[in-house]
Amino acid sequence: MEHRITVGLDGSPEGGAAARWAAREAVLRGAELRLFHAEESSVPVGAPAAASEVRRGWAEALLEDAAEALHHVHPELRITTQSYEGPPAASLATAAATADLLVLGSRGLGTLTGFVLGSVAMAVLHSTERPVVLVRGGEDGLPHPAGEHTRRDVVVGVDIGRPCDAVLAFAFEEAARRSCRLHVLHAWPPPVMVGYGAAYDPRVHAQINENMTADLAEVLGPWQDRFPAVDATALTSMGHAAQKLVDCGAGAGLIVVGRRIRRSSFGARIGSTTHAVIHHAVPPVAVIAHD
């Protein structure tokens, strides 16, 4: 199977940052990079056919210019382009089906506000089971030696009660490719007694944290055996999982979170922790769908 990374382009700075990130990732993976643009026709019925030609010409120029710029930085990278006229979210989800990874830009309003995730990106997350990476416009777009990402750490969130092989596999594989450290984080809520104003006993906190650390180490054991070269650090902490991930991942190169696949039309399609992380984290965020 040919490895491929697809990135959605829309002419925005965020889309450009996503393309540069995707190109570096494609070099790391030895994968093809596909630049993809989709847009519903905004030309009114009855308008001159030339208007549609202008839109198509703009899309082709966008893709060609991006491909040329990326080839200049990564001459060894195989780049293809595809323009599609249709609903962007559905088109991107279809394109993702034949890719190892889909990369999208995400508009931000600064470090305090975090992500403002557009309706297209959110719809794609809901509808594809392929890994999706969301990239902020401020992500480092400068060339890297040998096409490598900046060697910042990878951070992954884990629920000890329901550890997910797909999420851990993606995180360990990314850390191995980047030759960087992996931080595996589990956050646990405060004891019920604390919520009722009972006296806080630090010994209770220490014992809970010790138990959580042991449980997390047990979860990680098989993965560290599979990836002995990866320096994986287990972190446990009391608090809200999303906030802990955002704080821990502030200087990371990638934050990895999971999204449970919903087979039913009822219920949230993205969990509250993942939803909060993709809206407030500054580094790129990989969302891994799993059963």
Rank of each mutant, 00 (worst) to 15 (best):
residue 5 I to L: 12
residue 5 I to W: 09
residue 8 G to M: 05
residue 9 L to K: 05
residue 9 L to C: 08
residue 10 D to I: 02
residue 11 G to K: 11
residue 12 S to C: 10
residue 13 P to D: 13
residue 15 G to I: 05
residue 16 G to F: 03
residue 16 G to C: 03
residue 17 A to Q: 09
residue 19 A to L: 09
residue 31 A to F: 07
residue 32 E to Y: 06
residue 35 L to Q: 08
residue 42 S to F: 14
residue 43 V to M: 12
residue 48 P to H: 07
residue 53 E to Q: 15
residue 55 R to M: 15
residue 58 W to P: 00
residue 61 A to V: 03
residue 63 L to M: 09
residue 68 E to V: 06
residue 68 E to W: 02
residue 74 H to L: 01
residue 75 P to R: 09
residue 76 E to K: 09
residue 96 A to Q: 04
residue 96 A to F: 01
residue 99 A to C: 11
residue 99 A to W: 10
residue 102 L to S: 09
residue 105 G to M: 09
residue 110 G to C: 13
residue 111 T to Y: 12
residue 112 L to E: 13
residue 115 F to P: 00
residue 117 L to F: 01
residue 117 L to S: 03
residue 130 R to G: 07
residue 132 V to L: 04
residue 132 V to G: 07
residue 137 G to F: 02
residue 138 G to V: 08
residue 139 E to R: 07
residue 142 L to R: 15
residue 147 G to R: 07
residue 147 G to T: 07
residue 149 H to I: 01
residue 155 V to G: 08
residue 161 G to A: 15
residue 163 P to Y: 14
residue 164 C to R: 15
residue 167 V to K: 08
residue 168 L to N: 06
residue 177 R to W: 08
residue 179 S to P: 00
residue 179 S to D: 13
residue 182 L to E: 02
residue 187 A to R: 02
residue 190 P to C: 00
residue 193 M to N: 01
residue 202 P to C: 04
residue 206 A to F: 02
residue 207 Q to W: 04
residue 216 L to V: 05
residue 217 A to G: 13
residue 221 G to F: 10
residue 226 R to G: 06
residue 237 S to C: 08
residue 243 Q to D: 15
residue 254 L to T: 11
residue 254 L to I: 12
residue 257 V to S: 07
residue 269 R to S: 13
residue 274 T to M: 03
residue 275 H to W: 11
residue 279 H to I: 04
residue 282 V to S: 15
residue 286 A to Y: 05
residue 287 V to I: 12
residue 289 A to M: 01
residue 291 D to T: 01
